[in-house]
Design a protein around this nucleic acid. Structure first.
Lengths: 257, 257
DNA sequence: TGCGTTTCTCAGGAAAATCACAGGTTGCCG
DNA sequence: CGGCAACCTGTGATTTTCCTGAGAAACGCA
């Protein structure tokens, strides 16, 4: 198990029965991700969500544990909180890099943290998200990191397609039937979540849990509101793709059927 | 994690002599579900209904018992009331997850408590239903959770078929002979119940107990009413599939025979 | 700092779904 | 064939769910 661990992850994908596409390693084994954060609720939340992506997860609560776990677990990617109790984020990063020179890292930082320092770090192909984050954001960025860290083959994998609607996760470009559509950040994430689960009813709770940040305490009708925004931009004057299932949720599907 | 743990449930299904399709574990043994609620009437109700699905059930009345039972019983899914006497629902969840990292959980919550405490819970692929629930709802969601938690293979398992009538539990789509049919939530659940028991007479009492929430206090003729709605939508101008057995109940079967 | 954009709350209104009621219909039994 | 029980279904009141306009607050950027 340990010695057999291949370091590179190709951008190989497979399509699950639900129509979700998931990343796999070249040998077909699941992607491995190490989550490092000192707040238990955060590691739990992330572990749950990332496991649901079909990935194998380990977590650590401090820098020392992170390095240890990394050595043994040999993850394909690391989610690393920059604010750890025992050592500075940069120190942890350095030690991780000694163990796993090529592993991509997704940094978690507080909103007000010095952004330029992070910006410097991400130059190496890493990435970061600010707390409080949304799970869609973390998952999307991790997918991107893992995809790019492997044999850089197909770029097409970053494009979601449902009917004549396309969404590029890299360039954040969205178009329907050739027409470019400008979406705000939230609209984009909502649409991405819908498109990653086509023909599947998603409840408002699911959407809220996934697209909005984990500390969102507002009204559940933001979902309705943003669905309404999306419809205006995507379905306006066309055959609708976004459908309401009263009492159940929403779903997206090609206009044809 | 633990090598001895029979953790995964494949989406394997088999069709019983009565025509009911039931979930099974890869080795053919029954699915195991742990029910946790402090109200005895609820655990009894659920245990009975879930046993009827052919599943193996254990129940616990508090968090401590839940964790203990989980450790020993190693269920494939857990039904967990968020309001327990001895500990907070999230705490129970955390401890359960330590025992069984990948087990899917179906949360039971009060109708009005939905917004606040549910946050983040569905993100890991878990799900919830609000009290008072209908048994069909609980069973359907549990089946979904178990299906998705296992080796993600066949898609067809979320689609019920009787004759030329199909019902997709994921997209909530219903069609007969190619024509799409729009159903309301209650109609959908009623039809699902009928279709999960094809060629079998279901009494009005059974239907009421199963499709309507357990605290429903209305007139028993809602069943007649909704059967009438269904007929209008499904049998309209075609060979009827829904039949009345006077004094006994209703049944659905392919139009041909 | 100031301005445009984005996010979100609030609330009114529309639409849909649920269900009670009651009169009509059907099938069964003597 | 008559009568009764079981069943069917039209009507409409009530409730639930959803949609969306308006505007406040937060944000991002120059």
């Amino acid at each position: 198990m340990l010695s057999a661990a291949p370091t590179k992850v190709s951008a190989m994908t497979t399509t699950s029965p639900q129509g979700r596409t998931e990343l796999l390693r070249p040998d077909g084994s699941p992607v491995r991700v190490l989550v490092v954060d000192d707040e238990l609720s955060i590691t739990e939340l992330l572990s749950m969500a990332l496991r649901y992506e079909g990935w194998q997860i380990r977590s650590a609560g401090d820098g020392t544990g992170a390095v240890q776990t990394a050595r043994e677990f040999r993850p394909d990617a690391v989610v690393l909180d920059m604010m750890l109790p025992d050592m500075d984020g940069l120190t942890v990063l350095g030690r991780l890099r000694r163990e796993l020179p090529d592993v991509p890292v997704l940094f978690l930082t507080a909103k007000d943290a010095v952004e330029d320092r992070i910006a410097g770090l991400t130059a190496g192909g890493d990435d970061y998200v600010t707390k409080p984050f949304s799970l869609e954001e973390v998952v999307a960025r991790l997918r991107g990191l893992i995809r790019r860290s492997g044999a850089a083959d197909r770029r097409s994998e970053s494009v979601l397609v449902v009917g004549d609607l396309t969404l590029d996760e890299d360039s954040h470009e969205v178009s329907r039937g050739g027409d470019n559509i400008h979406l705000t950040a939230t609209e984009f994430e909502l649409l991405r979540f819908l498109m990653r689960n086509p023909r599947r009813v998603l409840s408002k709770a699911q959407i809220l849990d996934r697209v909005w940040s984990y500390d969102f305490g507002g009204q559940a009708n933001v979902v309705e509101l943003y669905i309404s925004y999306l419809r205006r931009k995507i379905d306006a004057g066309r055959e609708p793709m976004i459908h309401t299932r009263r009492g159940a949720g929403y779903l997206i599907k090609p206009a044809a059927s």
